[in-house]
């Protein structure tokens, strides 16, 4: 397992780096408006009623942005949690922990592709 992780390291680091940079840039505005401002009534909920939300999300660019908003934070999260696990538990279980976390991120990314395609 450790050998496989070492082989995939460039891809994992690419996704981690993208999650750290692009994911952070995208999440800031999304969380600010969708996660906080609309639920707290600071922005009217009509701004993201079904018709408008669907129109924004279902074009090609919208789908790409949504896929980035889902998948990139997942990979950033998986890699950072793995490194946190190494810091606290040492490298003995790193192979298993890494495979579990990256599998979860990959599965959720696949579901995300399905989710944006079926919009």
């Amino acid at each position: 397992m450790k050998h496989l992780l070492l082989k995939l390291e460039p891809v994992i680091w690419l996704l981690f780096g993208a999650g750290l940079s692009v994911g952070t840039m995208l999440l800031t505005g999304f969380v600010l408006v969708v996660g906080l401002a609309i639920p707290m009534g600071l922005v009217p909920s009509e701004a993201l009623d079904y018709e408008r939300a669907h129109a924004l999300a279902s074009n090609g660019f919208g789908r790409l942005v949504l896929l980035g908003l889902i998948a990139l934070p997942l990979w950033k999260g998986a890699h950072h949690v793995r490194s946190l696990s190494v810091d606290f538990n040492g490298g003995d279980r790193d192979g298993v922990v890494g495979v579990l976390l990256y599998t979860a991120a990959a599965l959720c990314s696949l579901i995300a592709i399905v989710a944006v395609v079926r919009l």
Partner: peptide, 10 residues
């Protein structure tokens, strides 16, 4: 937090 945020958006 990032991992959970990704699943919330999903």
């Amino acid at each position: 937090v990032y991992f959970l945020a990704g699943t919330v958006v999903l």
